[in-house]
Computed example of a mutant assay.
Amino acid sequence: MSAHYSHYDALENMKRAVADGQHRSVIGGMWDELGALQKRFLLDQGLKPHHRFIDMGCGSLRAGVPLTEYLDPDRYYGVDISQDLLDAGYEREIVPAGLASKLPRDHLTANPDFDATGFGVMFDYGIAQSVFTHMPISRLTDCLKALAPVFVEGGRFYVTFFERPEDVAAEAPVPHDPGGVVTYPDRDPYDTTLTALRAATSAGWRLDIIGHWDHPRDQRMALFVRETGQD
C-alpha cells in the first residue's frame, strides 16, 4: 500500500470521480494541449514509430491516445496507480478513437510500485509527466530502480518536475509563472532543487537537465539515459 502523497493515492475518491465522468479533469485537465505537447516533444527527442514506449503514471491516457496513434501497433505501454483511470482511458478514449487494435488491453497495468516487468519487453523510451510533481522526489529513485531492468542500453526516460531555486528557504512556497501553480518541498504539488534531483538519480542512469519544454504550468524536464553495464 502506497502512502497518500496526493489525491491520486486516494483510490476510492478517484473511483468516484471517474464514475462521475471526470476522467479527464481529475488528472489536471488540459487534455488536448498536454497530450499534443508530450507527443511533439518526444518526436523532437527522436521517438520513432517502432520504439517501445512506457508511460509511467499514464492516468486516463491523455498522452496515450496521441502516442498510440503515432506508434506502431503493440508499442505503447502504460502504468498507473489507478485501475479506474486506466479503464476509463481505454473504454472512453482509446476504443472510441478506433485505436484498440493498436493497444492491447494487457499493455496497461495498475500498481503503485512503478513495476513494468510484467510486460516482458524492453523499452526504448518512456515518460513520467506530472508524476513526481505529486510525490517527494525521493520516490524517483524507486522508479528508476524499477525501470532499470526493462530499459535498453541508451534508453531514454523523461521526467517532469517543478524546480525549486537553490537559494529559496527550504520551507518557503514557490510560485510558478506561467500557470500560477504554487509548489512546496513537503506536500502536493511538490518541487525539488536540482541538487535533490541529482541525489535521487539511481545508479545505472545518467541525468541530463533539459529544463523548459513549453509546459503551460512551468513544469521542467529531466532526461535519464540508461547506461551500459549498470544495475
Rank of each mutant, 00 (worst) to 15 (best):
M1C: 13
S6E: 10
D9W: 05
D9M: 08
K15S: 13
V18Q: 04
G21Y: 01
G21S: 00
W31S: 14
E33Y: 08
E33V: 13
G35C: 15
L43Q: 06
P49V: 02
H50Y: 00
H51L: 00
R52H: 09
L61A: 00
R62S: 07
D72V: 01
Y76M: 10
Y77H: 12
V79M: 08
L86F: 05
A88S: 05
R92Y: 10
E93R: 12
I94G: 07
S101W: 05
K102N: 03
K102D: 04
D113V: 07
D113T: 09
D113A: 10
T117D: 02
V121I: 08
V131H: 01
F132R: 04
T133V: 15
P136G: 11
P136L: 11
R139N: 09
L140F: 10
T141F: 09
D142Y: 13
K145L: 06
V152R: 11
V152K: 14
F161Y: 15
E166R: 11
E171G: 14
T183H: 09
D191A: 09
T195G: 12
A196M: 07
L197T: 03
A200F: 03
T201H: 08
S202F: 10
W205F: 12
I209Y: 15
V225Q: 12
G229A: 14
G229N: 15
